[in-house]
């Protein structure tokens, strides 16, 4: 699924989307950047409340194409600039993490997969 499609179907606000055609393979929800570094799968959008430059840096490292900021949090100018520089898309929702995660899960079709078995996280930090 493309980022643009996912964003539209989940009703996300596009704060800055340099390329809507990038493929999204999943989602990862976390406010702990060390966890994101350790576990965020390649190609997943990051759902977080962390509205700062470090979030962009971590996304670049793990290959997450987009950040979904929850609670309609403000995007600081430095974060916007960093995201533009690194080619990371910034999306936003007024909803909370749980709600938007569920919506993303439904659209991405992960519900069926994860109702069965969980994925134990390997080598936690």
């Amino acid at each position: 699924m493309t980022l643009a499609e996912l964003s539209a179907r989940c009703g996300l606000e596009a704060v800055a989307v340099p390329d809507g055609t990038v493929a999204v393979s999943g989602a990862y929800t976390s406010d702990l950047l060390s966890d994101v570094m350790a576990h965020c799968p390649d190609g997943a959008v990051l759902v977080t409340v962390q509205n700062h430059t470090n979030t962009v840096a971590v996304c670049t490292l793990v290959g997450a194409p987009a950040i979904v900021l929850v609670h309609g949090r403000e995007v600081p100018e430095e974060m916007r600039a960093a995201a533009a520089r690194e080619g990371v898309a910034l999306l936003r929702t007024r909803d909370d993490q749980f709600t938007v995660s569920c919506r993303l899960g439904a659209v991405l079709g992960v519900g069926a997969r994860c109702a069965g078995d969980g994925e134990p996280a390997a080598g936690t930090v």
């Binding site: 702990l32 950047l33 403000e74």
Partner: peptide, 13 residues
């Protein structure tokens, strides 16, 4: 949303 906390403190939530 303004904070002077460092990364270590943020990692504690």
């Amino acid at each position: 949303g303004t904070s002077t906390a460092n990364e270590w403190i943020r990692s504690l939530g």
